[in-house]
Amino acid sequence: MLAYVGLGSNLGDRAGYLLQALSLLSRLPETRLLRLSPVYETDPVGPPQPPYLNLVAEVDTGLPPQRLLEALLEIERALGRERKERWGPRTIDLDLLLYGDWVLEEEGLEVPHPRLHQRAFVLVPLADLIPERRHPVLGHTFAELLALLDRKGVRPFVL
């Protein structure tokens, strides 16, 4: 199954955390890392904090969505993620954005990610990878959804 994972970091060695997370993601069972979006530096959402580095990874996985989410949370813990405040700073953040065209709403898991179409820091890199793919719920392509958003605060970044 093709899945899309959003990655972000705004504490410490941001690029280093992204690279470590990608390395761990590529080693998950039944999972292959296929493509990466460009990296963007983005203004934070929430309380005052440093800017983020964000990208989206396309993976082919045999893991069911709940197990993939659990693996993403394990990667976050391995890289020192502490969940202290909502939308607070973090060493690494991994979000399951899409899992095929599935629509799921379970305890602790909602796919597609409920706010992905509202956040330029997710939608810009996702549209880089799959501009013509349609959002499973909204029906618009990701390029169309991106055209509705303000890209202010999203800048290309070279690792």
Rank of each mutant, 00 (worst) to 15 (best):
S23E: 13
V124A: 02
A120D: 01
G100P: 04
A120L: 02
T42A: 05
L145Y: 09
L53W: 04
I92C: 14
E105C: 09
H135N: 01
L96F: 09
P112K: 06
F142P: 02
P44V: 09
L34A: 06
R90F: 15
D128I: 00
L36H: 08
W102C: 05
D101G: 12
D60R: 03
L28M: 08
E30H: 10
R155K: 06
L69G: 08
E74M: 05
R83D: 11
P64V: 11
V59F: 00
L129R: 04
V154T: 15
H140I: 00
G12R: 06
L28T: 11
H140S: 12
G62H: 04
L18C: 08
G6R: 07
Y99R: 05
E74P: 00
L33I: 09
L149K: 12
G62E: 09
T42H: 01
A3I: 04
Q118E: 15
H113L: 03
F157W: 15
P114C: 02
E110A: 12
L36I: 13
I75L: 04
L19D: 12
P29E: 13
L116A: 00
L33H: 04
V103I: 15
L68P: 02
S37K: 09
P114H: 03
P64N: 06
G8V: 13
G8Y: 11
L18M: 07
L109I: 06
Q66P: 05
E106T: 09
N10H: 03
T61V: 01
L25C: 04
D128G: 00
L18V: 05
R14H: 04
G12H: 06
L36D: 05
P125K: 01
F157Y: 15
E132N: 01
H117D: 01
T91E: 10
R77N: 09
A3Q: 04
